[in-house]
């Protein structure tokens, strides 16, 4: 077998035979960040300060200084983000093998259930039902949870109540199942967090973070446009910034989707 023909690949992208779907929210100051009790450390929201704009601060150029947390906006979670992954090899964004930034995706649609119940938990049964239809999830695949949550804005998106956030996510068993039985590459969600809004009360708390990162798997959060992806067949390009010992980073997440010529 000869080398793969990347020119053909590029040609297919250019021709639209491979569609590039942007799964990223725009980084902006008003995009919500994860909410922690106020006495704890907080994730910095995105901020932008103009350095110059064709003015006395720089006559012919426009640029900004930006600041944010590693987990601001559409972002990538590295294993070192969680205590369960703190001692793994290659667990930070700068040491993760670059090949791991490209992987296929299985898109599981629980948007109907989530619309009915903001606290909907993905179960093993949901996964097996999906596999019945689309086949077994291949090893080292991203599992992307389509909830259509990214279509909500502001208060509805965060959905904070007095007892905390209410957003859908995986139950503890399904995370273990995906990691141990399906060799999951990582979990991607549309909500703030790979875990459900109420996952602090799960056992263990935040099971997606705990199990996935404990096994060196990754997370993608605050994704958009999952409704534009086929259940199978898409390839995700998600390369975080190379931050020394970084626990994650905002990034541009792209899905390559072969166009069906029906």
């Amino acid at each position: 077998m000869g080398a793969p023909d990347l020119l053909a690949f590029a040609g297919a992208v250019a021709a639209g035979d491979i569609e590039v779907v942007d799964l990223t929210h725009t980084l902006s100051p008003d995009f919500p960040t994860i909410v922690m009790p106020p006495e704890l450390g907080q994730c910095a929201p995105f901020r932008m300060e103009e350095v110059s704009r064709y003015d006395e601060r720089g006559s012919a150029w426009y640029w900004n200084n930006i600041s944010m947390g590693e987990h601001t906006g559409t972002h990538f979670d590295a294993p070192v983000h969680w205590i369960s992954g703190k001692d793994l090899a290659n667990n930070s964004v700068d040491t993760i093998p670059a090949a791991n930034f490209i992987a296929p995706a299985a898109v599981i649609d629980i948007s109907r259930q989530s619309a009915a119940n903001a606290d909907y938990e993905l179960t093993v049964a949901d996964v097996t039902a999906w596999e019945k239809q689309h086949g077994r999830i291949p090893p080292r695949s991203w599992v992307l949870l389509r909830t259509d949550w990214s279509k909500k804005i502001g208060r509805d998106y965060v959905n904070m109540r007095e007892d905390g956030q209410h957003t859908p996510g995986p139950c503890p068993e399904v995370v273990r199942f995906l990691v141990e039985e399906r060799d999951l590459h990582g979990l991607g969600t549309e909500t703030i967090g790979t875990d459900a809004g109420q996952a602090f009360h799960f056992n263990p708390p935040y099971p997606a973070h705990y199990y996935m990162h404990g096994k060196g798997r990754y997370g993608l959060q605050c994704l958009a446009n999952l409704d534009l992806l086929p259940p199978t067949g898409a390839v995700i390009v998600a390369a975080p910034l190379k931050i020394r010992r970084g626990s994650g980073s905002p990034l541009r997440v792209l899905a390559l989707v072969p166009r069906s010529h029906a």
Binding site: D30, P32, V35, G154, R155, Y157, V158, M160, R161, E162
Partner: peptide
Amino acid sequence: IFVGVADPWKP
């Protein structure tokens, strides 16, 4: 009286 509110998504 204009009253500023940040992070309107946070009750």
